[in-house]
Simulated scan of single mutants.
Amino acid sequence: MRKLKVAFCGGGTGGHYYPAVSILQELKRLGEIDLMYFTVSGKIDDRSVGKNFPEAKIVPLKLTGLKRPLYNPTNAGILFSHFKTERSVRERLAEFSPDFLFSTGGYVSYSVVKAAHKLGIPIYIHEQNSVVGIANKSLARYARLLFISFEESRSSLELPPDRIILSGNPVREAKSTRSEVMKRFNLAEESPLIVVLGGSLGSEVINSALEKFYSELEKSRDRLAFLHSTGDDNRALSLNRFPFVRSFSYIEDLTDAIACADLVVSRGGATTIAELQYFGRKGIIIPWPGAAENHQFHNARSLERVGLGYVILEENLTSTALSIAIREMLQRETCYKPPRRPVEIILDNILREESI
């Protein structure tokens, strides 16, 4: 494959950024690339692109997302800042002249995709959630192809069917075996492994419910092993009083643990749902009720439909509800077969479309 010049945008959260990382890593494996990445100033993509791709040309954009509800008066000023940013983005794109732009959504994508469209640069968009985001829905008409992670997203997009590709959500590959993960965290290899996380910043609701469950479990004869990411140092220290729990405020390479877990207890973010589907792992999902368009709930239902999910609404989350769900899910047998790698589907379609 010849050397490619590619522009990427989509960030502000890990849910937007990590799929882009997976695609770029695969592109680099296939051949040499020259990368320009438009980031949200100060956010995870802005902090991480230089570490993940030291050779990248990074263009930080000082933007904010629309306020909810959408008729909030402050949104007029926010939209104006996006229009102003579009002009500077267009200059950078014209100078760089990429073979194509790939966007993973989020508010940063609005200015970048619009600028690329005006320059005639081929545009490809990926949607991570089952509910299509505001930016991706409004920009979909500019995309040569729009990749979706859930079949139910298709009905909300006003595009010809052949321009919508069900790809799934690209995830990072696991690098460690189950045995290596259990040894790394000093967990009993013969015990079922349950990974607990509450999103990138943790969840006090999930932490509290699990602490009560751990107290009850300690009195029983059940032998389970928990790896718990709390998002909080003090909470992590407190939970480590339980001999069957290894708790940390943040866990590097958590993908390795999810890939070999017998069960995952988590929020319903797009990345976690994608990892569960990709690795064929079972999950108890407690959707965050504050997610835009309630997309975490719909993500969780999608996992439930393929037999890998068990949904507990936050208002119903108790140690008793957790105990029932954990027992049922550990015993549940599934016939789910993970699909083809999403990153392969996406790049095969783009490279074919661009005759690369």
Rank of each mutant, 00 (worst) to 15 (best):
G120S: 07
T104I: 09
Y124G: 01
T74E: 15
R301L: 08
V40S: 13
F226L: 13
G15H: 09
S130V: 09
Y336T: 12
L35V: 10
R267P: 04
F297C: 06
S215N: 10
L166K: 08
V196D: 01
V21H: 00
S176V: 07
E55M: 13
Y250I: 09
A225R: 09
G202W: 03
I148Q: 02
G10F: 04
A274L: 08
G290L: 12
L93M: 10
L159A: 04
A274Y: 00
G309Y: 02
A225H: 05
N299V: 01
A225E: 10
G31Y: 07
R178S: 02
N72H: 15
S167Q: 05
W288Q: 00
F96W: 03
A261M: 00
P98Y: 02
E55V: 13
R352V: 08
L139M: 04
L217C: 05
H16S: 06
R223S: 14
A325R: 06
S215G: 08
G106Q: 05
S22Y: 11
R29T: 10
S266R: 00
G280Y: 06
S130E: 08
Y214K: 05
E204R: 14
D222T: 11
L119E: 10
R223C: 12
E333P: 00
F83A: 13
R172T: 08
S130M: 06
I206T: 09
L30F: 07
Y18Q: 07
E86Q: 15
A325M: 11
L24M: 14
T272K: 09
A135I: 02
A291K: 11
E344K: 15
D46K: 14
